[in-house]
Computed example of a mutant assay.
Amino acid sequence: MIERIVEDVRKKGSFSFEKIIENNNLSDEEFFEFLKFVYQGNIPEVRTSVDGNDFIILEDENYYVEEKETIKAYLENVKEKNEEVFDKTEKTAITDENRTEMIEKYLKIAVRESLLYSKYGFSFLDMVQEATLGVITALNYYDKISLMTEEIDFFIKNFAVKYILEFQKGILKDIKASELSYILYLKIKVDKELGHTVEEISKRMNITKEYIEKLEKLFDNVEQDELIESGQIFEKANKITQMYILENIPKKLSYIDERILVMFYGLDDKIYSENEIAKTLNIAKHNVNILKEKALNKLSIDLLKNEFMKNREESEYTVN
């Protein structure tokens, strides 16, 4: 499997961790080999996540206050640990005695990547937990990485990403998407018969042309009787639509949201003051705390868009 993935990436000249995790089940050993390949080949990564441009705007920003306060307390705790870690920047060999300390040292990476990959429908703190498992796994390769490079963070970061994406993929396995897939296919077929182009259908249904092609490839030339009896076809339909859903669930945070939280809580190179954040991001100082609180509000949302629609009368919100 790894040979096929490597060859495909070599041909394209770039790669997407999201696509690779969605389409494959890589062992940790295979993933480590893949990381070595992209690192040594200096192959660029292409992110495929849909940016979080206020997909959901809470009118009652205290609606998820309990979840928000839990997240905030956790991030404050991480910030305190980071203050200690920044005082100990020397490279250290990993041993049984200092393993816990090393996990804490790299915990900020797990938290940072959980922020960057935080999507509607997935609990932020659950993702941190999975990302931390990724960090722990990466530390098993610490000696091998150290022999290859001093850029340890690259490998640790991407193991955290692997575990986050596998967690999201696992959650979506429970979604029965096959029926939706076939309904969408029938709708596409009707629209085509009415003379609409693929581009028009794509815009009207808010789905990609690539997804349309995959559905047509799967369902075209399949008789209805055969479809009813074939679990294999619906299994493929499930996979196609689950992957499409995962790729197109918007991120909770915008770029500014991410940067403010990463800088304020010291999840990158240092802990930034509000003055430094304002200057770096070219925003007014008095807006830093306001935007930080709004970002934490977004991070606390733990629902998908359709769940918001279903519970419309129970909460005050706007779906863009």
Rank of each mutant, 00 (worst) to 15 (best):
E3K: 14
R4W: 01
G13T: 00
S16G: 02
S16F: 00
E29S: 12
F32Q: 05
F32T: 04
F32W: 07
Y39F: 15
I43N: 00
E45P: 00
F55W: 04
I57T: 14
E59R: 14
D60L: 01
Y63I: 09
Y64P: 00
Y64E: 06
E67W: 01
T70W: 00
L75W: 10
E80T: 13
N82Y: 09
E83H: 05
F86D: 10
D87K: 15
D87I: 07
K88G: 01
T89L: 15
K91A: 08
N98R: 11
R99F: 15
I103Y: 10
E104K: 15
K105Q: 11
Y106L: 08
L116A: 10
K119V: 05
F122Q: 02
V128C: 13
Q129C: 05
T132M: 06
G134H: 05
I136D: 13
N140Q: 11
Y142T: 04
S146I: 02
M148F: 03
T149E: 05
F155E: 07
F159H: 08
F159G: 05
Y163K: 14
L172M: 11
K173S: 13
S181L: 03
L186S: 10
K189E: 14
V190T: 13
V198M: 07
E199A: 12
K203M: 08
I207N: 06
E210G: 11
E213Q: 12
L215G: 03
E216V: 09
L218A: 08
L218F: 09
D220W: 11
V222H: 10
Q224D: 11
D225W: 12
E226L: 12
E229M: 13
G231V: 03
I233Q: 05
F234M: 15
K236I: 10
N238L: 05
Q242L: 07
M243G: 04
M243W: 00
I245W: 01
E247I: 00
P250C: 08
P250K: 07
K252L: 04
Y255Q: 09
M263K: 13
F264S: 10
S273Y: 09
E276Q: 11
H286P: 06
V288M: 04
I290W: 06
K292N: 03
N297T: 11
N297V: 12
I301S: 00
N306C: 02
E307H: 08
E307I: 05
F308G: 01
N311V: 02
S315N: 09
V319K: 06
